[in-house]
Design a protein around this nucleic acid. Sequence first.
DNA 1: GCGACAG
DNA 2: ATCTTGTCGC
Length: 222
Amino acid sequence: MILTGFGDEVSLKHLIKAQKRLVQSASYKSLERSPNLIAGIDVAYTRDGLFGVAGIVVMKFPELQVVEEVVEKQRVCFPYIPGFLSFREAPLMIKAFRKLKHKPDLLFVDGQGTAHPRKAGIAVHLGVILKIPTIGCAKKPLLKSFSMPEDLKGAAKPIFLEKEQVGWVLRTKKGVKPVFVSPGNLITLEETLDYTLKTTTKYRLPEPIRLAHQLCSQVKKY
DNA sequence: GCGACAG
DNA sequence: ATCTTGTCGC
């Protein structure tokens, strides 16, 4: 059983059922329209671990110029459990998303999409709830079935879940560790690779995510 | 049973 | 995730 910040408890079985419902609502067809606005979202925590701060940065695409930034702070009310990250961070992220004046056509989420044991990464959860295209971009893998891509920007290798490809290990910069990208909702594996590269400039992470991380990380400081 | 384990 | 400065290498 898991204790939440509301004083109640939930079982892992219940959470797994919730993930299965979310996964059934996800779709992986091609993007309906080319994006004009792309955003990145991330969460940072205060030192005492009591509060979480979500940050979203919306950028014009393909220019990558910042159009809007929002942050939302809230008390943490769910523990971090590998495989169930979205139950801890999605509520706060959704609350921050509601404050946006400019809704993005594509959202990069800091974490996995379908490259997850049950294809239920946080990018899937957010994409289904918000009903928008999302891409999960993580700094570390959850699934281990993949080989390393060569050390060249753009090199990629598939990530598998039971023989089925669910994501990519992508080298976004030469001489730097790769990132782990996978579709969250309303986007294909090919487009996931394409847009991740199109939004990555001189750093390891795609600009929307890099700036969102910078934003919430700065705001949570005290 | 043991080890691994997004943020 | 968070606590933290300098330092090695391209």
